[in-house]
Amino acid sequence: MRTYDLSPLFRSTVGFDRLTRLLEAATNGEEAASYPPYNIEKLGEDAYRITMAVAGFGPEDLEITAQQNSLVVMGKAKKEQEAGQFLYRGIAGRAFERRFQLADFIKVSGASLLNGLLHIDLVREIPETMKPRTIKIEAASNGPALTQQAA
């Protein structure tokens, strides 16, 4: 297994703590459990969707929390009534917690549950002050300001 020493990054950067933690977690193999399975789609220039397979969970069993640059999806397990004896139990109905790290300016725009699939729609909303703007260049005039400087 490869290991990477990221300490030179810590010595020469300021304010990138979150990024270095993400890099360390990725290189150290800290991976969340594989349940429930999910997809991440890019729907457009600034639109994304996370789709999670949550068969057996209803809207009342799921909780979605967005805070700063983090999205947490939790599912609460239901107690099933023992109607019979299971010979094989392959449908997972256990509680889960799945965390996603969101980039700056990514906001949750909505969520829906359809046919056992939880869809979480995300959109990138860059504030107007952060968007590039064009600065108008005005032509200099040969008015009195130039003649006074020459004198």
Rank of each mutant, 00 (worst) to 15 (best):
R133V: 15
I120R: 02
Q148A: 13
D5F: 09
G110M: 08
R98C: 00
M74Y: 13
D121E: 09
T129P: 00
A47E: 11
F86C: 07
H119K: 10
L19Y: 03
V54K: 06
Q101Y: 07
I120F: 07
G15H: 10
L122K: 06
N115S: 14
L87E: 15
T20M: 11
Y48R: 04
A53N: 10
R98S: 06
I64F: 03
K78A: 08
P132D: 11
M130A: 14
K107I: 08
S141H: 07
Y4G: 03
L6M: 09
D5Q: 01
Q67S: 13
H119W: 02
L19E: 15
K136I: 15
S109V: 14
A55H: 07
I106N: 02
Y48F: 07
G29H: 04
E138P: 07
A53E: 15
G84K: 02
S12M: 01
Y4R: 09
L22S: 12
R124M: 06
V54R: 08
A33S: 08
Q67A: 04
E63S: 14
K78D: 11
S141W: 05
G44P: 07
L62G: 13
I64N: 00
Q68R: 13
V14E: 13
E41H: 08
I126E: 09
R99P: 03
G56Q: 03
L87P: 00
K131S: 06
F10N: 15
Y4H: 02
P8I: 12
T27S: 00
D17M: 09
S7F: 08
R133P: 00
V123I: 12
G75D: 11
A66V: 14
L9D: 09
A83G: 15
I50P: 01
I120H: 04
A92Y: 00
F57A: 05
F100N: 02
V123T: 10
T129L: 05
E60S: 13
Q149R: 14
P132G: 11
M52I: 08
A92D: 14
E41C: 10
R49W: 02
A47Y: 04
P127N: 07
V73F: 10
L22P: 00
T3R: 12
Q67I: 13
R99Y: 05
T13D: 08
F105W: 14
E125D: 14
